[in-house]
Amino acid sequence: MSKRNQITKYIKFYEVTIASTIVILMVILSAYFFLLPNLWHATFIYDQQKHVTEKLTVVRQKDSQLSNLDVDVYKNALLQLGKVLPESRDYVSFFTTFDSLEKSTGVQITKTDFQLGLLSTQSGRLSKPLNAPAYIIPITMEVAGTQQSLPLFFSQLQGLTGRLINILGVRWNIKQDEEEMHVVINGEAYFYPLPSQLGGVDVPLPKLTKQQEEFLITASELRSEDRTQDDDFSTIEVGIKSLF
């Protein structure tokens, strides 16, 4: 038998096996060149879709929240909160707070001492103590008042009407012949700088807690009251406008 005949016979004998092997190889090659890229593409689309869906949910929710936002309430509240917790040391607001407290409570502030520290804002901002929610200004004040007026003074000092002053300790002396009490108050006031930038469009809005919502309404109402009082003052006749 010639060698050629032998090969032909061999191929004939294995033709199905060889054909099947060729098909398997073709499938492997096709899978590598066509199926795998398609699968990668499908996976990419799936991931992107998931990402876009999540983003869309957040942005839709944000859009709806912002559409329903009562801008006036927030504007009023932010202005009032700026008085309670200013963005800088703002020593002037101490005096306005003390003036208004004296008027509203009848207590007389005889001495104040607040340690403003570094007034250069940039370097001053770096001194925020760890774990403290805001920057602290230690304050000592002496006030004179009666047993009736002082409690009101204490509660307003720690309220949202003016600059917030947290009372850390009090000391008072009582003289037999005097109705007025002299109280020395040790406390701390705070300031908190505004953030330099807002989050991205897809960053969800922070949710307010129940207590924060209560503060928001109180602050907004207090601001509205202040404004009404200002409006009342503006309508008061101040006499002859021209002296001549």
């Binding site: 909160l81 917790l85 929610p133 509660s155 720690q158 009090v170 705070y190 807690t209 928001l216």
Partner: peptide, 28 residues
């Protein structure tokens, strides 16, 4: 958005600060 974020941030700080305060109204 800026108004909301600033207000909520202030409220959050204020909530923590007010939680630290103790009432003195009845002490005297």
């Amino acid at each position: 958005e800026g108004l909301y974020v600033l207000t909520s941030q202030r409220l959050s700080v204020l909530e923590k600060l007010l939680a630290q305060t103790s009432p003195y109204d009845g002490l005297i």
